[in-house]
Design a protein around this nucleic acid. Structure first.
Length: 109
DNA sequence: ACCGTGACGTGTC
DNA sequence: TGACACGCCACGG
């Protein structure tokens, strides 16, 4: 049981707002929530995997690498989902990451 | 209670 | 550039 039962929900809420075909980073979410750290975001998403409809595949590390692919049902699922949305992935990294990147701070506008 | 281990990030050298 | 240290916080052994 996490100390902040809300934390996982918050992370999930943010993740759900990521537009299709766009991606964001663990750090961006952590900044937006001004709570916890990027590490905790990864932790929260990991805890979220079963039984939720959170597009966790749209969250990558700051270099645009699919660092969490090994935690999905299959190691290739993350990439497949991204490419299905038009996000090209090459060698476990997002192509044109700068253009695909979307920050949750956009929500404040 | 201590310690290693993460789906991480930033600063230094 | 690339390697490394350190901060981060929760969890399991």
């Amino acid at each position: 049981m996490p100390k902040n039962p809300h934390y996982i929900e918050d992370v999930q809420d943010v993740a759900r707002t990521i537009p299709e075909g766009r991606v964001t980073t663990y750090g961006a979410i952590a900044d937006f929530l001004t709570l916890g750290s990027a590490r905790m975001v990864g932790w929260a998403l990991h805890r979220s995997l079963p039984g939720t409809e959170v597009p966790a595949h749209r969250v990558v590390n700051r270099k645009g690498e699919l660092s969490g692919r090994n935690n999905f049902a299959t190691p290739t699922l993350m990439q497949e989902r991204l490419e299905a949305e038009g996000v090209r992935v090459e060698n476990d990294r997002i192509v044109d990451f700068d253009e695909k990147f979307w920050s949750p701070t956009e929500l404040l506008k």
